[in-house]
């Protein structure tokens, strides 16, 4: 059985897979005001339809920044948590964002 394979075709296939992998950066429309971090972070999760978890005690008395517009959840969280003493970790397997104190 003769199979004619165009040169570089596999590179194209690999490239498409890589593009698919790296372009998995879905953006969402956010509209969250500055204020109580617990409320704002749950709003963030619901607006992006993603999962989030945090220790309520750790976030007590901390306010997060406002974020508005269409962006990737990571970018939105970076803006919300900037200069708050909080940061996030995203679990690769469960795809859940955990918010923790620095």
């Amino acid at each position: 059985m003769n199979v004619v394979v165009p040169r570089f075709s596999y590179l194209i296939i690999f490239g498409l897979f890589a593009l698919t992998c790296c372009s998995n950066k879905q953006s969402y429309e956010f509209d969250i005001g500055a204020g109580d971090s617990g409320i704002a972070l749950r709003q963030f999760a619901l607006q992006a339809n993603i999962e989030i978890i945090f220790n309520s005690g750790d976030l007590e008395g901390i306010s997060t920044n406002s974020v508005r517009g269409k962006m990737h959840p990571n970018v939105a969280l970076d803006k919300m948590l900037k200069n708050t003493g909080l940061h996030y970790k995203k679990e690769s397997q469960s795809n859940v964002y955990a918010i923790v104190r620095k």
Binding site: G38, L41, R42, A45, L46, I50, E51, I52, I53, F54, N55, S56, G57, L59, K89, E91, Q93, S94, N95, V96, A98, V100
Partner: peptide, 21 residues
């Protein structure tokens, strides 16, 4: 005390986070 938004079928994810954090 925990605050969370999580899918009800994501048991493994939730339990894993308890373990981690």
């Amino acid at each position: 005390r925990i605050s969370s938004v999580i899918w009800s079928d994501n048991v493994v994810g939730f339990v894993g986070l308890l373990d981690s954090y």
